[in-house]
């Protein structure tokens, strides 16, 4: 692969290969920003990869109190899964265990779509017959009595079948410190893009995987071509000046949102430059045969 050079950073002539997912957006409000964030952080916890978590989820953005339905500070969260049934199960479990339980919380749909997932329509049964239904225009709210007052939850939320998961950037640098600095800059920039989340810890994953394994029980295993410690032993993808690789994975409600996020991430890494940050940017794919969405790095340069 012939690298392009931007501000001294090599950019692979490669592409990120992504897959269709089912996605939804919820708006969680609370009496103050701290508790809105707390409910959002809890409900999007343990949601890094559908392989082991059932869902991929994260915080999209904070929402100002003036723009939420109940006039309280809010946080927008996105959830993704491979099927509508699995997403339905994950939404009800996560809102039920993490938002319903969080002090002062309320939960609203934040995606207008033709298809719907039940939220309050399932969680209302917690009210044991004391739940109250409130309709206004075409919106339906459930009020469930709880020990700190009432949990208010919208009946359904929008479901999009056009969500995309698995957009990614491989950030390669001289050492761990510089590579992490570049990855942090990219994650910060990408978090500013609406309709996407970075599901891994702080947006960054250090253990990228390849399909398959020498062990029968494993579906995926470490991406040996990108492990610096295995240079010389395996068919490595790393040059001698690379000592660390970090990856950012992106899930988005639309294909365009993922492209925007990748563009913002690349711009942030390029701006940081190779002395302080990364030396090379790549992207993960499976040869282009598995996923229908291809994000070519050459189309996303600043």
């Amino acid at each position: 692969m012939r690298p392009m050079i931007k501000n001294g950073i090599r950019i692979d002539e490669s592409f990120a290969e992504a897959f269709p997912m089912r996605g939804t957006a919820l708006l969680i409000t609370a009496p103050n920003r701290r508790w809105a964030r707390q409910a959002a952080v809890t409900m999007t916890g343990f949601a890094t990869s559908v392989i082991g978590c059932g869902a991929e989820a994260g915080i999209d953005c904070d929402v100002d109190a003036r723009e939420t339905p109940d006039g309280r500070p809010g946080v927008r969260v996105l959830l993704f899964a491979m099927s509508s049934d699995e997403l339905q199960k994950q939404v009800v479990n996560r809102v039920g265990q993490c938002v319903l339980t969080s002090p002062g919380s309320a939960c609203f749909s934040d995606l207008v779509a033709e298809d719907h997932l039940k939220v309050g329509d399932s969680l209302r049964y917690f009210g044991d017959g004391w739940q109250i239904s409130k309709k206004f225009d075409d919106r339906h709210f459930w009020r469930v009595p709880v020990m700190d007052g009432e949990f208010l939850c919208e009946g359904v939320t929008g479901l999009t079948k056009g969500a995309v998961g698995g957009g990614n950037l491989l950030i390669m640098g001289a050492d761990h410190e510089k590579t992490l600095r570049a990855a942090e800059a990219a994650a910060d920039a990408m978090n500013g893009v609406r309709d996407v989340v970075l599901p891994f810890p702080g947006g960054i994953v250090r253990s990228g995987s390849k399909v398959g394994s020498k062990y029968k029980v494993m579906f995926a295993s470490t991406n040996d071509a990108y492990c610096p410690s295995l240079r010389g032993q395996v068919n490595t993808a790393l040059e001698d000046d690379i000592g660390c690789v970090l990856e950012i994975v992106i899930d988005g409600l639309t294909e365009a949102a993922i492209a925007d996020a990748m563009r913002a991430g690349i711009a942030a890494i390029v701006k940081l430059g190779p002395r302080a940050g990364a030396r090379r940017i790549g992207a993960g794919n499976y040869g282009g045969k598995l996923g229908p969405f291809h994000f070519h790095l050459k189309d996303l340069l600043p």
């Binding site: 409000t29 009496p31 339905p69 006039g71 309320a106 206004f136 709210f141 009020r143 007052g149 009432e150």
Partner: peptide, 13 residues
């Protein structure tokens, strides 16, 4: 009296 989002929502609607 108790805390609820309901009056706030109807106030805005």
């Amino acid at each position: 009296q108790f805390a609820s989002s309901f009056p706030g929502i109807f106030s805005r609607l």
